[in-house]
């Protein structure tokens, strides 16, 4: 009985057509899936590229803004403007006779500008992660063996 049903199903013409069509549509769907995936990845790559370009422009823009702000700040605190502000507040320039001097032991005086590290101070910072966490298994074994042989040789 079961064999008869199977036989009838397999030999029904419309079922054979559906199977062929199904196969064809599956192949088409698979093709479109691959194409869609490709397009999606391409689109994302292009977007990322454009975003990077925009970020480069933004970095340049921020750099210019920082430079401008630094110059604006220097302008606001320039000698002439600070003097005008001081005069507005009622300050007057002192003469040498009006100054009271006080000796402060150990005071080195006003220090000149240090805008960056001096060449001697450029030591590389210690890595935060210990080498035990970063070296490979091979290195660990090799170094361990070398250490053991070195110790035994002593």
């Amino acid at each position: 009985m079961t064999f008869k049903i199977m036989h009838t199903f397999q030999h029904a013409p419309w079922r054979i057509k559906f199977r062929g069509l199904g196969g064809f549509l599956t192949a088409i769907a698979a093709l479109f899936l691959v194409l869609g995936l490709f397009l999606s990845i391409s689109g994302q790559a292009a977007t990322a590229g454009l975003e990077l370009r925009a970020m480069n422009d933004e970095r340049e823009s921020i750099r210019q803004e920082i430079a401008s702000m630094r110059t604006t700040m220097a302008d606001i605190t320039s000698v002439s403007k600070m003097r005008a502000r001081a005069e507005e507040l009622g300050y007057q320039r002192v003469s040498p006779a009006e100054v009271t001097y006080l000796f402060v032991s150990g005071y080195p005086g006003r220090q000149t500008a240090v805008l960056a590290a001096s060449p001697g101070e450029l030591n590389m910072p210690e890595p935060v992660i210990k080498p035990a966490f970063t070296r490979s298994l091979w290195d660990w074994v090799f170094q361990g063996l070398a250490q053991v042989s070195g110790t035994s040789g002593q």
């Binding site: 430079a67 630094r70 500008a113």
Partner: peptide, 18 residues
């Protein structure tokens, strides 16, 4: 960016602006 020029105390004498 062209380098800036400061006086001995670090006050900006020549800089750049946008």
């Amino acid at each position: 960016e062209r380098g800036s020029i400061y006086d001995r105390w670090g006050n900006l004498l020549a800089g750049n602006k946008a």
